[in-house]
């Protein structure tokens, strides 16, 4: 256990020492206190942001640490979301089945990722072709689901509903002694997702600072050398792809449970591009940067959508271009490195 906790810090993650963990504790305390000074709608909206962060963290692992740009993480998001819908519309929410449905849906996404990833990585497909194939997969799924409009397209009680998507699935429900706790998209869901996010974030920090993460960054830096150190590069790439895609699947189920709907557009081109922007803008090579950057971009994007209507996507595109040119490692990473440099200089004086 102590060894695992030591892995919370390491060469693969920004932020270490008492100052970082004190800041982490303060941010966490503020996040816990947040619902007490924000209205229910805003808290539910923040929970909506949290839903997406898991997919961004997964892409950070695959792309930022492993060096393999998957442009189709939304395929796993959508697949898992639809799976949650089909399962819960057929079985219902009693006896905590929604939790079991989340696990099953995420397992389905992971299984699909393992199958697709096997052909990609063991077929030695990399670079731009990996992006093209994964994008093609998500677009194919989107097109397929969009044409499931007729009454024949149903799985048990669940109608797929074509481009309008599925709706009416139950929210997450936790069985409890004196009655089920329904995690409607407000305070209850917010706390559930916050807890899940903290566990995922810390778990990823441990993973990337462990032997697995070391090998992953070695593959990103020089796959030939990594193989010549005795590592089966394909297995590690596949492992990262499956974990990252499972996280995309988790986002999909949480999003579906949050809004009680899922549509094919969640796997479309625009949806597929957004996680790449979140991760690139924050800083793909670090989980903290991805977490902070994704929340910031999501908040900014929503504000733009409300106040800038059709210009929101244009601004997102511009943001990506500016970041790639000015701070290719990501804005949050650049900021954190700048702070670290200033701190070192101040300490030297």
């Amino acid at each position: 256990m102590r060894r695992l906790l030591r892995r919370l810090e390491g060469p693969q993650t920004l932020g270490r020492g008492p100052a970082f963990w004190a800041a982490f504790a303060i941010v966490l305390a503020l996040a816990i206190a947040y619902p007490s000074f924000a209205d229910g709608y805003t808290v539910g909206n923040t929970a909506y942001f949290f839903c997406w962060v898991f997919m961004a963290l997964g892409l950070c692992l695959i792309w930022g640490y492993g060096g393999a740009l998957s442009f189709g993480q939304t395929a796993f998001f959508g697949l898992s979301g639809y799976a949650y819908g089909v399962l819960t519309l057929n079985v219902g929410a009693a006896y905590g089945f929604t939790i079991a449905a989340v696990v099953l849906a995420v397992a389905l996404a992971a299984g699909f990722a393992a199958l697709l990833g096997y052909f990609l990585f063991f077929g030695r497909i990399g670079g731009v072709f990996l992006g093209i194939i994964t994008l093609s997969v998500t677009l194919a799924l989107e097109r397929f689901m969009a044409q499931t409009a007729g009454p024949d397209w149903r799985i048990g009680a669940a109608r797929l509903n074509g481009y309008n998507g599925m709706s009416g699935m139950p929210p997450l429900t936790v069985p409890w002694f004196d009655g089920d706790i329904v995690l409607f998209p407000d305070v209850a869901l917010y706390y559930g997702l916050l807890g899940l996010l903290v566990v995922t974030y810390l778990g990823l920090r441990i993973l990337v600072n462990a032997r697995f993460g070391n090998v992953l960054v070695a593959i990103r830096e020089n796959p030939e050398r990594a193989e010549m150190l005795g590592y089966d590069v394909r297995r590690y790439q596949l492992g990262a792809f499956v974990i990252g895609s499972a996280l995309a699947g988790l986002s999909g189920t949480l999003y579906t449970a949050w809004g009680q709907y899922i549509t094919p557009s969640s796997m479309g081109l625009t949806a597929a591009a957004l996680p790449v922007i979140w991760v690139a803008v924050g800083g793909r090579s670090d989980v903290t940067a991805t977490l902070v950057g994704t929340l910031a971009v999501l908040g900014g994007f929503q504000a733009l959508t409300i106040y800038g209507s059709q210009y929101a996507l244009v601004v997102m595109g511009l943001l990506l271009v500016v970041v790639v040119l000015a701070a290719p490692e990501g804005l949050v990473v650049a900021l954190m490195r700048g702070i670290a440099r200033l701190t070192r200089k101040a300490a030297a004086r």
């Binding site: 060469p11 960054v217 070695a218 830096e221 020089n222 030939e224 050398r225 010549m228």
Partner: peptide, 10 residues
């Protein structure tokens, strides 16, 4: 290798 096979960013 002939061309140094290292991990340059680490």
């Amino acid at each position: 290798f002939q061309v140094p096979g290292i991990f340059p960013g680490l």
